[in-house]
Amino acid sequence: MSVVVDQMTHMPIALLEDRSGEALDNWLIRNPQIQYITRDRGRCFTEAINRIIPDVTQICDRFHLIKNMTDTMMPEIEIHNRRIEAYLHEQQKTVLKYVSELATIISAGCITRKILAQKMGSKISGALIGRITSSLRKRYQQKRKEVKEHNESIENGSKIQRVSQNQIRKYILKGESDNPKLAEPYKSSPQIKELLSVCQNFRDMINENTYDKDIRKWIEKAKATRNMALTNFAYSIEKDWEAVQAAIDIPFSSGLLERTVNKIKAVKRQVQ
């Protein structure tokens, strides 16, 4: 469903049966007097507004813009909790038919090629098992070494800090962190430093903390980084650049709408 809230009175004025359909279209048709609409980046709303009242000024919600940017860049900064697929090459992926069974055996404590071949029987040859678990076994040895070093550091009174998602988000937005795992790449990697600088510039623009407020300049700067994640985000912003620019230039936002939605959901949960 969809809820419509008046920016001036902060009061809900309509509750629609859909997000993209006849109810939304009819409501927009009946209200051609609207001059400003704040919204998230959902294509359903954008397309309906462009089709029915194209002259209205659309304003992207600033919270969602910054959240979209940080969500896009999270995999670029993420340095923990990698899935096992990250260590498999194309040849290893040919045995995914038996990967669950093989993983169960490995999780039980079997890691050597000989024992794995015995457990899998004739399903996979010993040579193939050797190839598909080569990276894993090396990684296993590396992890054992890291665990040993970690235990020794605890004994010496030193603890290794784990990197949380909140720390990474703060790192993306501010370019600084008390966690050495994040602070070190910023100092040693010009690429990371450039990416974070562009991300911080975006946040400053959205929060009106900079004199340069032309989103089109930022889009070109983001594309120039040649980072796939940031470039894709820049292209998505470019498709909706007028609404994003309006979010920078006009003080309206969807904050009061989000509060209204939360109230409605709370009432719904109580009824259920």
Rank of each mutant, 00 (worst) to 15 (best):
M74S: 11
L65V: 01
P32A: 08
P32N: 06
M11K: 08
D61W: 05
I132A: 13
A108Q: 15
Q91W: 07
Q33L: 08
T9M: 10
I106P: 08
D40R: 10
F63S: 02
A86I: 10
E47M: 08
T9N: 05
C60W: 06
E22Y: 11
T104A: 13
A23R: 01
T57G: 00
H80I: 00
E17L: 08
I79S: 14
C44G: 09
T70L: 05
D25T: 05
D25P: 09
M11W: 11
W27N: 03
I129W: 06
I66W: 04
R51I: 02
I124A: 11
E76V: 07
V56C: 01
S122G: 12
C110I: 11
I129T: 08
C60L: 09
N68W: 05
D18T: 01
T104I: 12
Q33R: 12
H10F: 09
T94G: 12
T104D: 15
P12K: 02
Q58N: 00
L116G: 07
M8P: 10
I84P: 02
Q7W: 09
C44D: 06
I37Y: 03
K97V: 12
S125E: 14
C60Y: 02
I105H: 15
Q58A: 03
L24D: 06
W27Q: 03
K123W: 14
I37K: 02
G21F: 02
I59L: 00
Q33P: 07
G130Y: 07
D55L: 06
P54V: 00
M74R: 15
P32F: 08
I77Y: 01
I132G: 07
I111G: 13
L28V: 07
K119F: 11
P54T: 02
T112H: 09
D40L: 02
V56I: 03
D6K: 06
I53W: 00
T46S: 13
L65P: 02
C44P: 06
R43S: 05
P12L: 03
L88I: 15
I52R: 03
A103C: 13
K67E: 06
D61A: 03
S20N: 13
R113V: 09
H89C: 13
A117R: 08
Y98P: 04
R39G: 04
M73P: 04
E76L: 00
R131A: 12
A48C: 01
A86G: 15
K93I: 03
K93G: 07
P75G: 04
L116Q: 10
